[in-house]
Design a protein around this nucleic acid. Structure first.
Length: 579
RNA sequence: UGGCCCCUAGUGUAACGGCAGCACGACUGACUCUGGAUCAGUUAGUCUAGGUUCGAAUCCUAGGGGGCCAGCCA
């Protein structure tokens, strides 16, 4: 079966709210700034953004917010462009694997950077030339202080720093030393190149920040060509400048660095992008920092970067999330400078919205309970017509086989039903979805354990779906034919953490103490309708009344494995819980 | 005990000195062969105190609360 919900590019006709609201500023403060710049002709109407990840880990839902913002803004503006640039200035942490996974993930999300794939490492030579310029201007110097000494000289948040004894070296001496640093004459950590700004600045980033450090490490792209590497702070602003980025959008923690980026750009007298900071995404019941995600993977709290419980894009993808749902979520949460935390249910509802419209419906029984229809002919098999998607008539119908022996979900039977329970119980009636009304006549129990093992029921032949029958019953349940159903494994997921804020841990404990021990529940012996036998990995379905499920890549020809992506909204669960 | 930034219904987010709005949630009800979806309705807010102004969520001052910064990480 073909994947009915493969990722597709963003709909170019997607109405952007700017038009919808008739607002000149539009939608969020960043778009307002850009609209203002367009009106004033600041960049002759040119809009160019960039998404600048470091290739040292997998992308997560927080990155998706940034990707949707940067690529989204480019798409909304005539001629707008968004570059993909890897900020690969630290060879020790970066790997080709991540360069590839990041590109896969951005593409999967539905965005395209055309021929504008860039690497900060492509600018190493230019950055070096600019370092020479700054030395010649007398605003950069080689410093022989150790890392520890530099820290001491930097001062503290409340006390000014002290000038390095190497601060007043001559231009020639600095030029010579930097050349020799580059030539590999000095061991790691023995010297750095620093900007000469202000050791008393209240902004610590301006206290003679390091521009280059000696690192005899092999870079994933430049190999052993360099043994000195520019710091991120010395690289980022100029990389944006080289790419003629008009609006350099980044997260709040870089706000304090903006004066430094401005300083480099002004000293160098090169194109000056405007940096705008926004609040990064926080989500309840999960963690988002690369450090923690890495720890969850390395310490085997999850099964890998693509574990369906992870907030990584590969994890969400394997869980069954669609690119459209993630984009819809990013649209919905807005962009601001307030440090907020979004409820996980907002993400889940964005998913339900998308899947509801598009996911084909099927029937599947997670915890099978055998039902025998005593008055149904033993050799009869009927083909019942079932609607594939009530939200989308063009999805058509399919045939579902029905016979004397069925499975229903154990949850749909209660021997001693609570009030308002509209499902099966001794003597009660329900409708089988697309089939007949049945009545529970008798309960068969295991004499040893007392466990209910089978229901003996009767069916009313006059009540077949589509017939003239006017009989109504309160409940409709899903089912499969025992003889035709296909066995499957189903993996149920819950929040990775027990608390909305996993950092809210007991004294002496870390966020790891809040890990949810039941975040994964594996159900074997599930029974799904036969149309699912050939379902392809990643294809997504609604199991009626249960939720959305997708085929896990662990699926092999003889073994179907589904992930529960998200449950349906469950009003009954709410009623039962509150009483 | 320094500097920068932030604070609007439960959660997010608009309102650019002029009617505090939207989304999601929650709660009602309608409809329903998915206790789904859909539809209708209800709920609830400008951190505090001063000031400027005809008029303040918006500007100013002070206070409160929160975030970031002392990597040769990004």
């Amino acid at each position: 079966m073909a994947d009915p919900l493969a990722g597709s590019p963003p709909d170019p006709d997607r109405p952007d709210r700017e038009a919808a609201e008739g607002q000149p500023g539009g939608r969020d403060f960043i778009r307002s700034i850009i609209a203002d710049d367009n009106r004033s002709g600041k960049h002759q109407g040119r809009v160019q953004t960039r998404f600048p990840p470091e290739p040292n880990g997998y992308l997560h839902i927080g990155h998706a917010k940034s990707i949707c913002l940067n690529f989204g803004i480019a798409a909304e503006n005539p001629g707008g462009l968004c570059n993909l640039r890897f900020d690969d200035t630290n060879p020790i942490k970066e790997e080709e694997e991540f360069v590839e996974s990041i590109q896969r993930d951005v593409r999967w999300l539905g965005f395209d950077w055309g021929d504008r794939l860039f690497f900060a490492s492509d600018y190493f030579e230019q950055l070096y030339e600019w370092a020479l310029v700054l030395i010649r201007k007398g605003v950069a110097y080689v410093c022989d202080l150790s890392a520890e000494q530099i820290r001491e000289y930097r001062g503290t948040l409340t006390e000014p720093g002290r000038n390095s004894p190497y601060r007043d070296r001559t231009v020639d001496e600095n030029l010579d030393l930097l050349a020799r640093m580059r030539a590999g004459e000095f061991p790691d950590g023995t010297r750095v190149l620093r900007a000469k700004i202000d050791m008393a600045s209240p902004n610590l980033n301006l206290r003679d920040p390091v521009m280059y450090r000696i690192l005899h490490a092999t870079h994933h792209r430049t190999g052993d060509q360099w043994c000195i590497y520019p710091t991120y702070d010395y690289t980022h602003g100029q990389s944006d400048s080289i790419e003629r980025i008009t609006h350099s959008i980044c997260t709040l923690e870089f706000e304090n660095h903006r004066p430094l980026y401005d300083w480099y750009l002004d000293q160098l007298e090169i194109f000056h992008p405007r940096q705008i900071e926004f609040a990064r995404l926080n989500l309840t019941y999960t963690v988002m920092s690369k450090r923690r995600l890495l720890q969850l993977v390395n310490d085997r709290h999850v099964q890998g970067w693509d574990d369906p419980r992870m907030p990584t894009l590969v994890g969400l993808r394997r869980r069954g999330y669609t690119p459209e749902a993630i984009r819809g979520f990013c649209d919905r949460i807005g962009v601001a400078k307030f440090n907020s935390t979004i409820d996980m249910h907002v993400l889940e509802n964005a998913l339900r919205d998308d899947l509801n419209r598009r996911a084909p419906r099927v029937m599947a029984v997670l915890r099978p309970l055998r039902v025998v229809l005593e008055n149904y002919p033993a050799d009869l098999v009927e083909e019942l017509e079932a609607v594939n998607n009530p939200e989308d008539p063009s999805a058509g119908t399919r045939r579902v086989p029905m016979a004397r022996e069925l499975y229903i979900d154990a949850d749909d039977f209660r021997e001693d039903p609570p009030k308002k329970f509209h499902r099966l119980s001794p003597g009660a009636e329900v409708r089988l979805r697309y089939g007949y009304i049945i009545k529970c006549e008798r309960v068969v129990k295991d004499p040893a354990t007392g466990e209910v093992v089978e229901l003996r029921c009767s069916y009313d032949p006059e009540t077949r779906s589509g017939s003239q029958s006017t009989r109504k019953v309160k409940g409709t349940i899903h089912w499969v034919s025992a003889a035709h159903a296909v066995p499957a494994e189903v993996r149920l997921y819950d929040h990775l953490f027990l608390k909305p804020d996993p950092d809210q841990a007991e004294a002496g404990q870390t966020y790891l103490s809040n890990l949810n021990p039941d975040s994964l529940q594996v159900l074997t012996g599930c029974q799904v309708e036969p149309s699912l036998a050939e379902a392809a990995p990643e294809s997504r379905y609604q199991f009626e009344r249960l939720g959305y499920f997708c085929v896990d890549p662990d699926t092999t020809p003889g073994r179907l494995v589904f992930n529960r992506t998200v449950t349906l909204r469950d009003t009954w669960a709410k009623i039962e819980k509150s009483s």
